[in-house]
Computed example of a mutant assay.
Amino acid sequence: MATTPQTNTSLEAIAEILRGVESVAVCGHVSPDGDCLGSQLVVYHALENLGKNVTCLLAKSDPVEAGLRFLPGIDSMVPAAEFSGTPEAFVAVDVPTVERIGDAAAAVQAKCPITVTVDHHASDTAMSAYTYVDPDAAATTMLVWKLAELLGAQRTPEMALCAYTGLVTDTGRFQFQNTDKAAFAAAFEMVSAGADPAAVAREVFQNRSIASLELERIMLSRMRFGFGGAYVASYLTRADFEQTGAVKADAEPLINSIRAISGVRVACMLREEPEHIRGSFRAKDDTDVAAIANTMGGGGHKAAAGFTLHGPLEQAIERVDAAVAAALGVDGEADGWKAGDIRL
């Protein structure tokens, strides 16, 4: 594993720091996924086991997606905007920049004398006094799982379940390119400590709503290919969500359906939201979709990344097409959609 240039400490040193404080706030990024929530809760349980006063924060007041509400400790999480305490230490996990910790930036992090980051997202900047970022780690839960051991906390079945959930989601059920020997070794440890893979699969991957399936039907009807089939994309509008009664979490699995198509190298899903267009990329080869997302102000992992664009959906499509074409080294426009085809 290789840390980033922004890393200025070790997990051993972070464990020593956290053992020396009595109160801690733990926060992740806005729109938290399984790795984010799992990482927060591993740290939460580990520090609570050591007798610390720990508060787990949500970067925004949005509800946690249904498929992750089974995680032990999830009900103890507090929206950062509603938290008025001043802990000795603020620990950011699975989040690289202060903008991504949402309400916690002003409400909590800025007031804490000790700030720590443990993450696996490479970034050009560091937001904490003590920073440990390892982009080779398949999931941040792998890092906090090790941190829990270094803290001297008992790694309980509850912690193992949270850690395994983060690992299995960030590796796409161990199908993404970040799945390596270290990921399987960590999964073995977590299952040995009490994580139940079948329970996680049932809650996270086999728990879709009818509204989600309706969204998938709409998404597939708009699917189009480009660049000789190397690129597949689709989109959803606000009207689609209103028509189906779906929520944002219902759209999360959809990109994996089109990524699975034979011949596809890069998949993209665009989702219209009230003030912007949210986009997601997935890669099936060595194409670095984090680099593509970065050209549009986003980021993520080599195989999975996201971005936010402002303006009409038609403009977002044109910009994404151009970015993907440059990354794939092809000339011309993607096949399929024209401006008049976008069904708003």
Rank of each mutant, 00 (worst) to 15 (best):
T3G: 15
Q6W: 02
A15L: 07
E16N: 10
I17V: 11
E22Y: 01
V26S: 02
V26M: 14
G28Y: 01
P32G: 06
D33A: 05
S39W: 05
Q40I: 05
Q40R: 05
L41V: 08
L47C: 00
E48V: 13
E48G: 08
G51H: 03
T55K: 00
V64M: 04
E65S: 12
A66T: 06
G67S: 12
F70S: 14
F70C: 15
L71K: 10
I74K: 11
S76R: 15
M77F: 01
M77E: 07
M77S: 03
P79K: 10
P79C: 13
A89W: 03
V91R: 11
A92K: 09
G102M: 05
G102D: 06
A104Q: 06
V108L: 04
Q109M: 15
Q109H: 12
C112T: 10
H121S: 12
A122V: 10
S123Q: 08
S128F: 14
P135S: 15
A137I: 07
L143F: 08
L151H: 12
A153R: 02
Q154W: 04
T156G: 08
E158W: 07
E158R: 08
E158H: 07
A160W: 00
A163K: 02
T165R: 01
L167E: 03
V168M: 09
T169F: 05
D170R: 10
F176P: 01
N178P: 09
T179V: 04
K181V: 02
A185P: 02
A187L: 06
F188S: 15
E189S: 08
V191A: 14
S192V: 01
S192I: 06
A193S: 10
A195K: 02
D196A: 08
A201R: 13
R202F: 04
R202G: 03
Q206I: 04
S209M: 07
S209P: 00
A211L: 14
E214D: 12
E216V: 13
M219S: 02
M219F: 15
M223H: 09
G229P: 04
Y235H: 10
L236V: 12
A239V: 02
D240L: 10
F241C: 03
A246V: 00
V247I: 10
A251I: 08
A251N: 03
L254A: 09
N256E: 12
I261Y: 10
S262N: 15
R265D: 05
V266F: 04
C268I: 09
L270Q: 04
E272P: 01
E272H: 06
H276D: 14
H276V: 13
G279H: 03
K284W: 01
T287V: 14
D288W: 14
T295G: 13
A305V: 11
T308C: 08
L309M: 13
P312Q: 03
A322G: 06
A325R: 07
G332Q: 11
A334Y: 03
G340D: 15
R343Y: 01
